[in-house]
C-alpha cells in the first residue's frame, strides 16, 4: 500500500501547466492540479485532467511495429531505427531532401523540438518542418 503524488508537467501543449500524477502501488490512477503553481494556478484543462489516461492504456504501443506485406509485426528498437535511417537516406538520395517533411509534436519539450528542427534542416537538409500545435 503506497500512495504518492508525482509532480510533473502536462505533456499536452506548450503552456506548461503543472500536474500531479496520483500513483497507487506503482500505477498511475489519476491526475490532480497543483495549487499555487505559478503557471497553472491550481487549474487544469480537460486534457490535463485526463493526462494519466494513456499511461496504462491497453491500446498503447510499447514496441515498434514494422509493416511487411500489409501486416504489422513487432520489432526491436535497433531494427526499427535502422529501417528508418535506411529509408530516410534512400529517399534523400533518390528524390532529393525536399521529398521529406517532419511534423513535430506538442508533447515534446522545447529542447526536443529544437533538436528535431536541427535534425531536419542540418541532416535531412530541408525546411519542411512543422508542429502539430502551430494551428
Amino acid at each position: 500500500m503506497e500512495y504518492r503524488n508525482v509532480l510533473t508537467t502536462c505533456p499536452y501543449c506548450g503552456t506548461g501547466c503543472a500536474l500531479y500524477l496520483q500513483v497507487l502501488d506503482g500505477s498511475v490512477v489519476g491526475t490532480l492540479p497543483v495549487k499555487g503553481h505559478p503557471i497553472s494556478e491550481g487549474a487544469l484543462c480537460i486534457k490535463g485532467w485526463n493526462a494519466h489516461g494513456f499511461i496504462h492504456h491497453a491500446d498503447r504501443l510499447t514496441k515498434p511495429l514494422i509493416r511487411e506485406q500489409g501486416q504489422f509485426r513487432e520489432a526491436g528498437w535497433d531494427e526499427a531505427y535502422n529501417l528508418i535511417a535506411d529509408r530516410f537516406s534512400s529517399f534523400k538520395s533518390d528524390f532529393g531532401p525536399d521529398s521529406l517533411a517532419v511534423l513535430s509534436s506538442a508533447k515534446c519539450t522545447n529542447e526536443e523540438n529544437y533538436l528535431l528542427q536541427k535534425f531536419t534542416r542540418a541532416f535531412l537538409g530541408t525546411n519542411n518542418v512543422d508542429h502539430c500545435a502551430r494551428l
Partner: peptide, 28 residues
C-alpha cells in the same frame, strides 16, 4: 498533505520519518 520542495499534495504517510514533510495548506 505532504510538502515536497514547496509543492503540497496528498500523501499516504506510512513511517514517522516521513513526517518532516508534513504540509498544511493549500487544501486538497
Amino acid at each position: 498533505l505532504r510538502n515536497k520542495s514547496g509543492h503540497v499534495a496528498p500523501h499516504l504517510f506510512r513511517e514517522r520519518e516521513e513526517l518532516n514533510g508534513l504540509g498544511l495548506s493549500p487544501k486538497y
